[in-house]
Structure formats: structure tokens, C-alpha cells
């Protein structure tokens, strides 16, 4: 079980818990504002963009080339950006804080 906090664009923290699946699917199930996951998690739409903090970036694995290519053309992307459909939930993520990108 991992407890993950999303900080929405309105600066509202939303705490959700999950055991498996992708972080995007967990956010969509819990109606986290700004995480749409339109393509269902195949890295085609970039509607699940989040910023990880510098301190916690090691908790999530590095983005694949395909994901990096998607983020490269996102105006809100920075070096701590991830598409959260590409992050699988594990216990290691317990306590993770993600800020929903604009």
C-alpha cells in the first residue's frame, strides 16, 4: 500500500492510496483534478503530467526515451517531470508528493 499526495493546480492536496496499477489510474479513479489520462496509459496524450520534487525524484524510475520525447514538447515540463501513467505503484512510493502540471 502506498499513500500518494497530489497537489492540484489550485494548490489543494489530495491524498490517495493504492496497491497496484499506474499512478495515473489511481488519480483518475479518485478524480484528481488535472489528471485526465485520456489515452488510458499508453503514453500518447500527456494528460497525466506531474512534477516530482527534487528530493523524491529517486523514488520514481527514470522516464523512458518515449516518455522523454513526449515531455520535451510540453511547455510546462522541467527536469523533474513525469507522465504518471508510466509510474507503477509500489510500496516504495509511499509518501510520494506529486504536483499536477499546468
Amino acid at each position: 500500500m502506498a499513500k500518494i499526495t497530489f497537489i492540484t493546480q489550485d494548490n489543494i492536496p489530495v491524498i490517495v492510496e493504492g496497491e497496484s496499477g499506474s499512478v495515473m489510474a489511481l488519480a483518475v479513479e479518485n478524480n484528481v483534478a488535472g489528471i485526465d489520462g485520456d489515452c488510458g496509459g499508453v503514453c500518447s496524450c500527456a494528460t497525466c503530467h506531474v512534477h516530482v520534487t527534487k528530493e523524491q525524484f529517486d523514488l520514481v524510475s527514470e522516464a523512458s526515451e518515449i516518455e522523454k520525447d513526449m515531455l520535451e514538447l510540453d511547455d510546462d515540463a522541467n527536469e523533474y517531470s513525469r507522465l504518471c501513467c508510466q509510474i507503477d505503484i509500489t510500496e516504495q512510493l509511499d509518501g510520494l508528493v506529486l504536483t499536477v502540471a499546468g
Binding site: 489515452c39 499508453v42 503514453c43 500518447s44 496524450c45 523512458s64 518515449i66 520525447d69 513526449m70 514538447l73
Partner: peptide
């Protein structure tokens, strides 16, 4: 197919 960054809906 798990990774599928297609552009059938444009970009």
C-alpha cells in the same frame, strides 16, 4: 501494446 505514443488524434 504498452507504449504507444501514436498521433491518430493529432498532437
Amino acid at each position: 501494446r504498452k507504449l504507444n505514443p501514436h498521433v491518430s488524434f493529432g498532437f
